[in-house]
């Protein structure tokens, strides 16, 4: 189908539109979470959805994360396609058993019986002064669990395409949405069959000098840095994995073969982060022999996210960190 018509909307509206379209398309899709009904979601994401779909499909739950996730797994295994919202990604810790021990493993552990087509929406990231228990980026935890899929959109169009693909996927998909992107505007395909393939890595900006692999809000900081560097004649290739697990490494490996230089960046704490995994896979691949400089990992500091605005910003890599990283790789610093 031709994807021509685009409409400008926010990241938040794009997620809502994606969910709404899927709920209209498939009666088995239900939506559960805390304060998603009349309240419209803690971030206003589900405003108006209760009116359209009613309480049977837009289900306010008690504050009971373990039961929300477990219920979603059970419902998914028996024929529904639940989408559930953790108010903050941090709260997934309370639902970990159902996700990790039950949902992720069920299909394999039962020898191919029972699909678990559920989506866990996880608002993540710092930048809102929400403090240590409401600002984490815990994607690396989820990427460590075989059976889960972990995706994270960086633009409104990606948000719509991915939430729809996630709902249609027959596996538990962790959909990590960055809180600081909710108000970001962008053009989104109007087509209700528009989806973004899960498990596909995207080249966001072509270049030949240095490869930057990043996702989430940092993608935008990387693009800013790339624009700055372009004025100096440095062409940075930016790659957004979009699907963090299972990750499509091919475009990353190809890019590193081309540039010989790699920066991997994420907001989450550096130690044990997804970046380390990407780097390890690059080094294991044929790209190793093309590396012409040490790899740089930009990650969040290994600290809980502090409250103070300046301190909070200091934890997360910024645009200049990308610029200096590129300089370093090109021996310009």
């Amino acid at each position: 189908m031709e994807i021509n018509e685009m409409k400008k909307m926010t990241y938040r509206d794009a997620i809502r539109l994606g969910m709404t379209e899927e709920m209209r398309r498939d009666d088995d899709v239900i939506f559960l979470g805390e304060d998603i009904g009349l309240y419209g979601g803690a971030f206003g994401l589900s405003e108006g959805m209760l009116d359209e779909f009613g309480e049977a499909r837009v289900m306010d739950t008690p504050i009971t994360e373990a039961a929300i996730v477990g219920t979603a797994v059970g419902a998914a295994a028996t024929g529904l396609r639940p989408v559930c919202e953790m108010m903050f990604m941090d709260f997934i810790t309370l639902g970990m058993d159902a996700l990790v021990n039950q949902g992720a493993k069920m299909h394999y552990m039962f020898g191919g019986q029972a699909a678990v087509p559920m989506v866990l929406r996880l608002p993540a990231g710092s930048g809102s002064g929400a403090g240590a228990q409401h600002s984490q980026s815990l994607e690396a935890w989820l990427c460590h669990v075989p059976g889960l899929k972990v995706v994270t959109p960086s633009t409104p169009a990606q948000a719509k395409g991915l939430i729809k693909a996630a709902i249609r996927d027959n596996n538990p998909v962790c959909f990590i949405e960055h809180k600081m992107l909710y108000k970001m505007e962008g053009l989104v395909p109007v087509d209700d069959e528009f989806t973004i393939e899960i498990g596909k890595t995207f080249v966001e900006r072509p270049g030949k000098d240095v490869t930057i692999v990043t996702y989430g809000t940092l993608l935008h900081k990387a693009i800013e840095a790339a624009e700055f560097l372009a004025e100096e004649g440095i062409e940075v290739e930016i790659i957004n994995p979009v699907t963090l697990y299972p990750m499509d490494m091919k475009p990353i490996v190809e890019s590193v073969i081309k540039t010989g230089r790699l920066i991997v960046a994420h907001e989450a704490s550096k130690t044990g982060g997804v970046g380390g995994e990407i780097v390890a896979r690059v080094v294991e691949s044929e790209a190793f022999d093309y590396l012409n400089a040490p790899i740089i990992r930009l990650g969040g500091l290994d600290v809980p996210i502090p409250y103070n605005k300046e301190l909070e910003a200091a934890v997360v890599p910024q645009r200049n960190d990308f610029v200096h990283g590129v300089y370093r790789l090109l021996n310009r610093e």
Partner: peptide, 9 residues
């Protein structure tokens, strides 16, 4: 020698 993998290749 201190050399990058690409140089070694």
């Amino acid at each position: 020698a201190r050399a990058t993998p690409a140089a070694r290749r």
